[in-house]
């Protein structure tokens, strides 16, 4: 599983990183990066204040 951010929408607030239970997300100067630790729990997607995150299924 992996999360991708719509770069046009993402405001880089980093709140999604704060709700990720497995520390899979990271806020960098390029935006949100998702590592292979992602379990697909979707907490970040539900959190996102601007609806910028999408979960893509299967193995990354």
């Amino acid at each position: 599983m992996a999360v991708t951010a719509d770069k046009g929408r993402c405001l880089r607030c980093g709140g999604c990183v704060g709700v990720c239970p497995v520390a899979a997300l990271r806020l960098t100067e390029h935006g949100i990066e998702c590592s292979s630790k992602c379990t697909g729990c979707s907490a970040c997607v539900q959190f996102c204040p601007v609806g910028a995150l999408r979960l893509s299924g299967g193995k990354d």
Binding site: G15, G18, V19, A23, A43, Q46, F47, P49
Partner: peptide
């Protein structure tokens, strides 16, 4: 330091 979803104000 991670937050439960219910514990964070959006």
């Amino acid at each position: 330091t991670s937050n439960k979803l219910v514990d964070i104000c959006v």
